[in-house]
Structures are given as C-alpha cells and as structure tokens.
C-alpha cells in the first residue's frame, strides 16, 4: 500500500498468462504489430491532413534520422546526454537501493520518511530545477542531479516496499544464523527482492532519462534535449520528430529488455 503512487507503473508488468505454444505466441505478437502499423498509418494521415504537410511524414522522419545518425554532431549530443544519464542512473540505483534498505531495516524511520518521499515523487520537480541550477551551476552536474531527483525516489520506495513485504521467515532465519546486518542484507534480503529491484531499476531508468532530458531542454547548451529545443525554436519539425523517435525507440527497447529480464527472474524464482 505504501508506494501506491508507483502502482500504475508496476501494474503494467503483469501480462496475460501465456503458454509457449506457437499459436499462443503468435496471438501475443500479431496484435501489437497490427497496432503499430495502424499508428504509423494515423501518423501518415496527420501528415496528409495538416496544411502543406506541417507534420513530418514517417518517411521524412526516418530519412532525417538517417541523416542525423550520419553526422558527428548528433553523436556528440548522444554522448553528452548518455554520460549525464549513465551517471544519474548509476547513482540513483546505488543510492536508491541503499536508502531503501536502510529505511526498511530502520522501520520507524522508514515510516516517518515515506509520506515525505511519496509527496516528493508526485511533485512537479521542474519547479525545483532553478534551485538545482543555483546549487550546481550550469552544466553536467546539474543535469545529473536533476536526473537523480527523478530516479532516486521510486527506486527507494520500491526497494523499501519489497523488503517490508518480505516473509518474516527470511529475516528470522538470518537472525538464527547470527548473520551481521551487512551479511543479512547481502546474502538474504537482496537476493530475495531481485525481481522488485529490477522493476525499480526499470522505472528509475525511465524517470532519470526524463529528468536529464528536461534538464537539457532548459538552460543547457548541449545534448539531445538542447538540440530538440533548439529545433523547436527554428521550427525544424523533421529534426524534432527524428530525435523524439530515436529517444522513444531507445527507451522502449531498454524498458522491454528490463521487463523481460524481470519476468525471467520472477519465473525462475517461482519455479523453485
């Protein structure tokens, strides 16, 4: 009940029961592909419907993306955004899991802090971005900090939640075996909550990417977010769509990968 704010995001990770029959697999693969084709047709329809094709067609976007990916400037932006994102993600994961474990083991502290974290999670954090900029100055550290502001809290909440809902027998066993707190966390608690950790990392991944991009869209001179905002100023819709599609593909693929990892782990631990 505690991190219900996140519920809608984790909820989606449940799917219909699927068997490994070929017909069944086909029934799971065909509908999403049909939907993707329908969406692309709608996109093309929008392109034709708007005056003089103000919205770039799928083909034009793809062409622009190919041109972009051939240019050195684009990969400099990707490297800039990627570096900030990688730092934000790694720090969010490490700090988030650490904080989540601490808040779960120190139960009273966790119960006091939880409402504060939940409130912070549903705040429009953009409003606090100027504060981040004033503390860190313009540049990479501010972007990383802003990415962490988005990614840290969900990972913390999900980790804490997973541990508090752990069967008491795990912790009791650790106690019986006289494990130190550190050993108990390393060899009992963390292995027991690996599926939830992957779920938390998946959500932290999306949110810290969002945070870094928003950071770049405001007061930045480099990165994909900046290039997109710059293209908005120039009315260069082709570039915006190309960057949008590139980011969407990256995010969806990474998310899908983490999702199937999560399912594989859940499946394996359920089989034991």
């Amino acid at each position: 009940m505690s991190s219900k704010v996140l519920a809608s995001k984790t909820m989606a990770s449940k799917t219909l029961p699927s068997r490994t029959l070929p017909g069944e697999a086909l029934r799971n693969i065909v509908p999403p592909i049909v939907l993707a084709l329908v969406l692309i047709l709608c996109w093309q329809g929008l392109h034709l419907a708007t005056a003089s094709g103000a919205i770039s067609s799928p083909a034009a976007t793809l062409a622009r993306l190919v041109v972009l990916m051939g240019s050195g400037r684009f990969w400099l932006d990707v490297a800039e955004t990627g570096t900030a994102f990688a730092w934000a993600l790694v720090l969010s994961i490490v700090l988030g899991i650490g904080l989540g474990v601490a808040l779960a083991l120190l139960r009273p502290v966790g119960e006091v802090m939880e409402p504060i974290l939940v409130t912070f999670y549903s705040l429009p954090k953009v409003t606090l971005y100027p504060l981040v900029l004033l503390i860190f100055g313009l540049g990479m550290p501010a972007k990383i900090a802003f990415g962490i502001m988005h990614g840290l809290v969900p990972i913390t909440l999900l980790t804490r939640n997973a541990i508090t809902q752990l069967k008491p027998v795990y912790l009791r066993t650790a106690k019986v075996m006289r494990l130190s707190a550190f050993e108990a966390v390393r060899s009992v608690v963390l292995p027991a909550i690996i599926p939830e950790l992957v779920a938390g990392i998946r959500i932290g991944f999306s949110l810290s990417l969002l945070g870094v991009l928003i950071g770049e869209m405001f007061a930045s001179k480099r990165g994909l977010g900046f290039t997109a905002v710059n293209a908005m100023g120039l009315g260069d819709l082709d570039t915006i769509m190309a960057i949008g599609v590139f980011l969407a593909l990256f995010a969806v693929l990474a998310n899908g990968g983490l999702l199937s990892l999560e399912r594989a782990i859940r499946h394996r631990s359920a089989g034991r």
Binding site: L213, I214, L237, I240, A248
Partner: peptide, 13 residues
C-alpha cells in the same frame, strides 16, 4: 508497460 519511458515533452511542437 513501456509508455512512461518515452519523454512526451519532445513532441510538443
């Protein structure tokens, strides 16, 4: 399941 991974703001224009 992947929806919230996409940064929607990019599509403002």
């Amino acid at each position: 399941a992947s929806y919230y991974a996409v940064p929607t703001f990019i599509f403002y224009p």
